[in-house]
Design a protein around this nucleic acid. Structure first.
Length: 561
RNA sequence: GCGCCCGUAGCUCAGUGGAUAGAGCGUCCGCCUCCGGAGCGGAAGGUCGAAGGUUCGAAUCCUUCCGGGCGCGCCA
């Protein structure tokens, strides 16, 4: 079975519902697709739909009346699979499915294994995803940590959903900050203080010590060597944080002439110059006061932006323009930039550049991650007091661990500020949500291992009084319904660029499993074989979905803890 | 002043048109003859910042206002 042929049980049910709707309307579709979701209350059935309430204008009848007609249509389509339908409230249709349907659905889930819920996207895209992009003149700081958690989580999520994701880090290795970094390194190598506006962090001396002859070499060579070392350090920090990239894109490369095209001896102009040429051709740029400007106001910016100063030096924005030119030329279906909150003012100008260079406005998304405030027992935390440094990603990971750090940074929507209490994430780690989910996974794996070893535990008190019925009980049903929601959760989270939804879902599923674990013995003697088989399947499916969810979040799914 | 984000339980946060608004932590009361107690059950706790509006229906959409964060360079 390939990914493309994995149709989720719920998806098939939705198709039936759509058919029923078309039957009732005579072929016309409602403006918005009918919902098909688990109702909040168990009394409202396995699934509920608002379909009847979307159709009054089309059908010319009141929702309850339409619901009755939908009921008939659904009964025709589903037959015995449908155990019960009721019209409730303002026109909701509450569906209850038969054991046979549920068993078949479970079989589908188990067959799909860890790929259940994967590759569900209707139109896969090649997506360029840029995230973190810290300056290479210091360690990855807490803002970068959030960008890393969100960016890598989003990349994993989009990938799981069926897109092709290219992960990229933009290295700002160009401009006067690089020169300043070089000067700071050389000063440290000579045992001097860095320049007034230079880099003061303690890491500067460490890096300087790794550069041969740093005290005497030309300062620009020191700068280049220093940047290379810093990038390597960032790479190591990020890999430890389970955040990787397909490419580390050099800003400097945008300013350098490129190798000749095939069959030519002439070097090609830099991408900056080429982008400038395209913009001039398109009439998107203009010269004023000797400077070269881009008309970013056409994309909602509050003023136009300079790309090249009167003295010929490019601005930082020139690099952005060329970088987005490069992204566009590389031929992705979509470009997503993940930026920190302090860059939200750049949204318009980046979109303007992308569009001016021939990109489609709907093909670029700029996502802003909000700030992270660290607390320690309710007080503002001061982790790194070394001058000139923000709290480093490494320190955070040393303190609370990769799994907790990723969970806390990824379990919340990217556009809300996070107040992270380190004492809570660290000292109460035993009761941390992330460990709760991991525990559920480890516990299931343990049961599955025992089952594989042929273990049967003693009958539990009360078990022998139970009849030998093989009907699906509430604990099984609720867990299965939670599992069936997984593909929808993935689709929703991916479409909304909201990996935090995966964390919310994983926690809810782990809770649901706990209820099942409490009420439904798997290995106990006296459990009918058919029931044990079903419960083992539920265990297998839950473990697979938890592992997939944790995998998206970049959190370990341990076999034992 | 203008722009972006946020305002939901004591705290941290889910919930972007559906039925009685949820979780974790914290607090209180219970549960280890039982597949992993890193667990389970229960309780208390909410004018969803405020006021209008749209709708059969609003935490969710619109308007205004009030709080908080961030940004408004020919710096990078």
């Amino acid at each position: 079975m390939t990914d493309a042929t994995i149709a989720s049980p719920l998806q098939r049910l939705r198709t039936v519902l759509d058919d029923a709707v078309l039957n009732v309307t005579g072929g016309e579709r409602p403006r918005s697709a009918p919902s098909l979701e688990r109702p909040k209350q168990a009394a409202h059935g396995d699934f509920a739909t608002n379909a009847a309430m979307l159709l009054p204008k089309i059908v010319g009848a009141a929702p309850p009346m339409i619901a009755e007609r939908l009921t008939v249509a659904l009964q025709e389509h589903l037959g015995d699979a449908l155990r019960e339908v009721e019209v409730a409230g303002p026109g909701f249709l509450n569906l209850r499915l038969s054991d046979a349907w549920l068993d078949a659905a479970l079989a589908d889930v188990v067959a799909a294994g860890e790929r259940f819920g994967a590759a569900g996207v209707a139109v896969p895209e090649a997506i360029h995803l840029e995230y973190v992009s810290n300056n290479p003149t210091g360690p990855v700081h807490i803002g970068g940590a959030r960008g890393a958690a969100f960016g890598s989580g989003l990349a994993n999520l989009l990938d799981f959903h069926g897109h092709r994701v290219h992960r990229e880090y933009y290295v700002n290795d160009f401009g006067n900050q690089v020169a300043l970094f070089g000067a700071s390194l050389q000063a440290r190598a000579r045992g001097e203080e860095p320049p007034e506006e230079g880099y003061q962090g303690s890491y500067v001396a460490d890096v300087a010590a790794e550069i041969p002859d740093a005290a005497t070499r030309p300062v620009d060579e020191v700068a280049v060597a220093g940047i290379a070392l810093m990038v390597a350090r960032q790479k190591a920090s990020l890999e430890r944080f389970r955040t990787t990239f397909d490419r580390w894109f050099s800003e400097r490369s945008l300013h350098q002439p490129r190798d000749p095209a095939e069959g030519s001896a002439e070097p090609r102009p830099s991408e900056v110059d080429e982008a400038f040429g395209v913009l001039a051709e398109q009439g998107r740029s203009f010269e004023q006061d000797g400077a070269l400007w881009l008309r970013t106001t056409e994309s909602g910016d509050d003023k136009d932006r300079v790309m090249r100063r009167a003295d010929g030096r490019p601005t930082y924005f020139a690099s952005d323009v060329a970088y987005h030119y490069d992204k566009r030329v590389r031929g992705f279906d979509r470009v997503i930039d993940v930026l920190g909150a302090d860059h939200h003012g750049y949204i318009h100008r980046l979109k303007a550049a992308f569009v001016a260079l021939g990109g489609d406005e709907d093909r670029i998304e700029i996502l802003i991650t909000q700030f992270v405030n660290l607390f320690e027992d309710g007080e503002r935390a001061k982790m790194s007091k070394r001058a000139g440094e923000f709290v480093a990603l490494d320190e955070l990971v040393d303190d609370i661990g990769v799994d907790a750090a990723r969970w806390y940074l990824l379990a919340r929507s990217h556009d809300t500020t996070i107040d992270l209490d380190l004492a809570e994430a660290r000292e109460q780690s035993q009761e941390n949500p992330v460990y709760y989910v991991q525990y559920a996974h480890a516990r299931i794996r343990s049961i599955l291992q025992r089952a594989a070893d042929g273990e049967v535990t003693g009958a539990r008190e009360g078990d022998d009084e139970a009849d030998a019925s093989t009907a699906i009980v509430d604990g099984e049903r609720e867990l299965l319904l939670a599992l069936l929601a997984w593909p929808d959760e993935v689709a929703e989270a991916a479409d909304r660029r909201a990996p935090h939804r995966i964390a919310t879902y994983a926690l809810a599923l782990a809770r649901q499993y706990s209820a099942f674990y409490r009420d439904c013995p798997v290995l106990a003697a006296g459990v009918p074989d058919e029931v044990r088989a079903r419960r083992l399947d539920l265990c297998r499916a839950t473990a697979a979905v938890l592992a997939a969810a944790l995998g998206i979040l970049g959190v370990d799914a341990p076999e034992r803890m």
